[in-house]
């Protein structure tokens, strides 16, 4: 911490300006989320600051109208499969990349960076075409496969620095004492890697719930996740009561926020955007 006492008026004004901008931003953010929340409980809300009355009926009507039971189940299946598969593919690959130097390693890393740098719509459209050709477009398998494209490289890139900081002598010591590859894996690697894997997979989970573009391009009527269903509801607004759509939006917020809160117990918020830069915190 720097001493504040000697600061000049100009730097105080500057600090004041900075905090005003931050405050204004957060105020509007709260207002925005608050509007959705308030509207979802409103009986009638026109031309006043607050609704005329309060009700929870929109949650029941939204649940039926948008078949939220089915949509949530699809979301759960997609997210579960994506988290599991990207963990199974990503963690071993990260282990290999962290522990071995081999010819073509840079090429592999570049290959993994590309899906994170290319806009999702750019590769999503050809990917959707290919998935439809293989008969998995518009169904659950296609949606899961499409969502793997950004998540697998993400898991690898988050896990590489985490594995690199683990002393390889721990594994070597286990081997010296006669442990086989399998028992090193079960008794040494799994316990050490667990916190990192958990953090990476929670981030994948939060990102997959909110992943719009790829799911949107690939999903069919029976394979929409919650965020895509919400998009279609907002897009076709006017057909249904606004409050009903807002109730759905609140349900979406809750599904995301529950996992975000759990994720924040294990990861630093900056890690949600940056790739495990602040690893020393864990």
């Amino acid at each position: 911490m720097r001493a504040v006492g000697g600061e000049k008026l100009s730097s105080r004004l500057w600090a004041f300006a900075v905090w005003t901008v931050v405050g204004f931003f957060i105020l509007n953010l709260i207002g925005l989320i608050g509007s959705v929340l308030t509207s979802s409980f409103a009986t009638r809300w026109l031309a006043t600051w607050f609704p005329a009355g309060w009700t929870t009926k929109w949650y029941f009507s939204a649940w039926d109208e948008f078949q939220l039971g089915d949509v949530l189940w699809v979301t759960f299946e997609v997210v579960g499969a994506v988290v599991l598969i990207s963990g199974l593919l990503g963690v071993p690959a990260a282990y290999a990349l962290a522990r071995r130097e081999f010819v073509g390693k840079k090429f592999v890393v570049l290959l993994l960076l590309l899906p994170l740098l290319v806009p999702s719509v750019t590769y999503g459209i050809p990917l959707a075409t290919v998935l439809y050709q293989f008969g998995v477009g518009g169904n659950l398998v296609g949606v899961i496969l499409a969502n793997l494209v950004p998540t697998v490289p993400f898991v690898v890139l988050v896990m590489i620095p985490f594995i690199e900081q683990i002393d390889p002598r721990i594994e070597a010591a286990a081997r010296v004492f006669g442990a086989g590859t399998f028992s090193i894996f079960v008794h040494v690697l799994v316990p050490i890697l667990m916190p990192g894997v958990l953090a990476a997979l929670l981030l994948v989970l939060v990102r997959t719930i909110a992943m719009f573009e790829l799911t949107f391009l690939v999903a069919g009527p029976g394979s929409q996740t919650l965020v895509v269903a919400l998009y279609y509801a907002v897009f076709a607004a006017g057909v249904r009561a606004v409050q009903s759509i807002d109730a759905m939006a609140v349900i979406y917020m809750l599904t995301t926020l529950v996992w975000l809160i759990i994720a924040l117990k294990f990861v630093n918020p900056t890690q949600i955007v940056a790739r495990a830069k602040n690893n020393q915190n864990h």
Binding site: V22, L32, I33, A210, V227, L230, T256, L260, L264, N268
Partner: peptide, 24 residues
């Protein structure tokens, strides 16, 4: 605290922000 608040709109995503903006 601040970073947690700011992470909210990223995790909620563009669809929800758009939905909130329409009314707000």
């Amino acid at each position: 605290i601040l970073t947690t608040i700011l992470v909210l709109p990223i995790t909620l995503g563009t669809v929800l922000v758009a939905e909130g903006m329409l009314f707000y």
